[in-house]
């Protein structure tokens, strides 16, 4: 097994019960409900995410994971309820302000800015740029030194993500996996406290998956908290300090990876007859050798 995140020790005594309070939560969600017509996409009574650890959000397709992401990051507005991020109210706060608070997301469908160079993609991420105000933009001395500092930081991150050889290429020329790397590196340019990764491994070849995973695992060591959506259970079990399971918009389970994998509610959610073909998920309990007969309904 991997070395746990620096903050993971604090979770040792937390009971694996949905909505359980955490010792040092960074994101607290209260009574968030989102309906789409007659469908309740998200209905989360209470959820706390611990600071400085990697939390995975799993659940079958249509469980409301991406909607939950959108609600938290200001890309969608909840019908009821809200969250607080690091003590700041998130109710009806627009997306760009949420990013300003230090919570940055990536997208399931990668958004590499195709007609900007890789370096420009990176530099865009930096927060509080003086040259981004229209009047100062016309007067380069007002922003040149800051721009230089930003460029240095971007170059360092590009080296860390092994994209430095592509720095002057247009974003659109990158491969799918490289785009995922770029998007993650670009999110780090914001210097976030929390990174929300929506399926960062989707459509990435196994070799690159490994490298992406290493980067995700690295984030808590840089003081960041991570929430990420993933379908591959092997990945989830390997990487997470804590796992939150959604099903039909609700939090149906949470806990350390091993505990969640054995939770009958989770197994039900994945194997339940009314979910149709969920063959992308591996509903096997973890670790595999503990495959117990009672896991089968």
């Amino acid at each position: 097994m991997r070395e746990p995140s620096p903050g993971a020790a604090a979770l040792k005594d937390v009971a694996p019960v949905p909505g359980v309070p955490k010792p040092d939560p960074i994101l607290v969600v209260d009574g968030v409900v989102r309906h789409f017509g007659g469908l309740t996409a998200v209905d989360v009574e209470h959820l706390e995410l611990q600071r400085g650890v990697i939390t995975s959000l799993i659940g079958p397709n249509g469980a409301g994971k991406t909607t939950f992401f959108n609600l938290m990051t200001g890309f969608d507005i909840a019908d009821e309820g809200a969250g607080t991020f690091d003590g700041q109210e998130l109710r009806k706060v627009p997306a760009h302000k949420v990013a300003g608070y230090g919570m940055v997301r990536t997208f399931q469908l990668t958004k590499a800015l195709t007609r900007l160079t890789v370096l420009e993609n990176m530099k865009l991420g930096a927060h509080g740029q003086r040259g981004e105000r229209i009047l100062s933009a016309l007067w380069p001395p007002a922003w040149r030194s800051q721009e230089q500092a930003i460029e240095e930081r971007a170059e360092e991150l590009l080296v860390r993500f092994k994209l430095d050889h592509m720095r002057d290429e247009l974003g659109g020329t990158l491969s799918g996996g490289q785009r995922k790397l770029l998007e993650m590196a670009r999110a780090l340019m914001v210097e976030p406290m929390m990174v929300m990764l929506d399926e960062p491994m989707a459509g990435v070849n196994p070799a690159l998956t490994q490298s992406l995973l290493e980067h995700v695992k690295d984030l808590p060591h840089h003081g960041m908290s991570v929430l990420f959506v993933e379908h591959d259970m092997d990945v989830v079990m390997d990487i997470s300090d804590w796992v939150v399971v959604m099903g039909q918009g609700r939090i149906i389970a949470e806990g350390p990876p091993a505990a969640v994998a054995k939770d009958p509610a989770v197994i039900d959610a994945y194997l339940g007859a009314d979910h149709g073909d969920e063959s992308r998920f591996t509903p096997t309990p973890w670790p595999p050798e503990s495959r117990a007969p009672e896991a089968r309904p």
């Binding site: 990051t73 890309f75 997306a95 990013a99 940055v104 958004k111 800015l113 007609r115």
Partner: peptide, 10 residues
């Protein structure tokens, strides 16, 4: 290129 990406970056 993509206004959601710009929004996500603040």
């Amino acid at each position: 290129e993509d206004e959601d990406a710009a929004r996500a970056l603040g």
